[in-house]
Design a protein around this nucleic acid. Structure first.
Lengths: 191, 191
DNA sequence: CAGCGTTGGCTAATTAAATTAGCTTAATGG
DNA sequence: CCATTAAGCTAATTTAATTAGCCAACGCTG
């Protein structure tokens, strides 16, 4: 009986792939074990259980997303950076709906949760986008959160396949980016 | 053994309440049965199973939300209508996080799915908000979808308790409303 | 008021999935 | 070459959903 030689990263990676393939809700230990050519209990040598696996997939997704966004934004600023962020975000969620779904509803286990770190990196990229616009000092956190909500909303609706939309979501997404760009260009009035 | 005299609506309503109390992910047939003073299999006399129950809760949530929003928007237009919609939306999700979570990831079973009807009503309210702004004819669907994404994003982040935010989300939400209002006021340039 | 069908409840059994216990063997390092 | 550890396995347990099949209460009707 040759050893499969799995690592925790292998299991999480295959789990993420499985979630993308069959949907996050259908992620199951048995299916994953089969796919890895192993019996179900063997997975417990590498991960703590289903809940842990789901959390790890969420962390993987946020990390990958953060990396992709950071790469795409290299050397861009202002509207270019916004477009790069948005397009990359959307491309990631399209390519990896199951992974992204894992991040929806995932909770932070504490201040040193890797998921929290990964999420913070993504928020930092949003902050970097905003540096290219003239947003007041005490408005900036509100702006970060607003952008986060908008992109997250689009992503969850897409990941949930909620778009019974006629026509291409792409076109709406572009409109959304222009809407945000226009909003960020206008000086934010004193509140 | 006196009959409890349950109806399907009772079961769905109690399920919704339970989801709000313990979180949608922890909604279980056994807990619900206990809460209704009944054994688990008895629930199947009224509903088709857990998946059906979840779908029904989502429909209930969308219906309640649509009614609340419609009520709040009575006699308002433009920025007032926008504020009324947004505040009501947020209040509903705050009061009923479990119900709203049920709507995330719920799929339409077909063109006559009551959930689809209820969702459409909410979208109609968004369309009504936009009638108070000067949005071009062929921009309007994009605008509807953009607003939907933004509010839905806020709602899911809040329902998932993802706000490790310092300070009051309320303030950010107000900022978000003003941001949208400002964006809708500026004439949308020809694309 | 008795009969009787329908409804809504029950217990017991089944299924499915996650998890745990305990055993075995391949790799590795002294 | 042995001893330790790690990674797999089978078998057992637990938990939750669901199904099967029985029984009593309610509401009607003759």
């Amino acid at each position: 009986m040759p050893k499969a030689g799995l690592t925790a990263a292998d299991v999480v990676g295959a789990g993420a792939q499985l979630a993308d393939d069959v949907g996050f809700a259908n992620l199951a230990m048995g299916t994953l074990a089969t796919r890895l050519g192993v019996r179900t209990p063997s997975l417990y040598k590498h991960i703590d259980g289903l809940a842990q696996l789901q959390h790890d997939i969420a962390t993987l997704a946020m990390t990958e997303l953060g990396d992709a966004v950071r790469d795409a934004m290299q050397g861009r600023a202002g509207p270019d950076a916004l477009a790069a962020f948005a397009q990359t975000f959307r491309a990631y969620v399209t390519a990896h709906p199951g992974r992204y779904a894992a991040t929806v509803g995932a909770l932070f286990t504490g201040p040193d949760d890797p998921l929290l770190r990964a999420s913070t990196r993504v928020l930092d990229s949003i902050a970097a986008v905003l540096r290219g616009y003239n947003v007041g000092e005490n408005e900036i956190t509100h702006a970060i959160r607003t952008l986060r909500c908008t992109f997250h909303g689009f992503a969850t609706l897409q990941a949930a396949n909620a778009f019974q939309w006629t026509g291409d979501p792409e076109e709406t997404f572009d409109w959304m980016i222009r809407f945000i760009d226009r909003g960020l260009r206008t000086d934010t009035p004193p509140q």
